[in-house]
């Protein structure tokens, strides 16, 4: 099987890998980099479980080839923790019961992060729209929406506290 040398920047680390060109980002993350936090539910771009961020934007990793990502930054669920501490979204999801079986959770968290980075105070409707590509069969979505709201509020508090301190 013909392989190609690629360089992939994931969670801030550069990796040089020899992979068949048709291997998707999802497969490379899970199989070559052992980053199994990224899940798969269909491999057809229908369920959202494999969502990762590329330069901050949600991308379905099952539909992307690593060769397209030269020089770009990939963020997976393993890179969401900051300094060994859970991201406010991760904490809020754990506290509100937003992860039941947990299988859709990594993808949902990354879609939510992209939303909050772009829009720190989204309405519930905006959150639902941003997450409408991430299917969940356990929660009925309501505790997920609540968790995103809770994390957003907490992140705003931290930001405004930082601004105040800065003065």
């Amino acid at each position: 099987m013909e392989k190609q040398l690629i360089t992939l920047k994931v969670n801030g680390e550069l990796h040089t890998l020899a992979v068949p060109v048709f291997k998707t980002l999802l497969e490379v993350l899970r199989e070559d980099l052992s980053l199994t936090g990224t899940k798969h539910g269909c491999e057809l771009g229908e369920c959202g479980a494999c969502t990762v961020l590329v330069d901050g934007e949600p991308v379905l990793s099952c539909l992307v080839l690593p060769i397209e990502l030269q020089g770009r930054e990939v963020l997976t669920i393993e890179g969401l923790m900051e300094g060994g501490r859970p991201h406010p979204l991760q904490r809020a999801f754990a506290e509100t019961g937003a992860a039941q079986c947990g299988y859709c959770t990594p993808g949902v968290l990354l879609s939510a992060k992209a939303l909050l980075d772009r829009k720190p105070a989204p309405t519930r409707r905006e959150i639902a729209e941003a997450l409408s590509g991430n299917l969940c069969r356990c929660t009925g979505y309501l505790q997920i929406l609540e968790a995103v709201e809770r994390a957003a509020a907490q992140m705003r508090d931290v930001r405004s506290a930082a601004t105040t301190d800065g003065r």
Partner: peptide, 20 residues
Amino acid sequence: PKVDALPKCTGETRYADDLH
């Protein structure tokens, strides 16, 4: 919070297909 909530939110929980 559920006892397994944080591992599920950090990608650490290993499901059957994550085994290698």
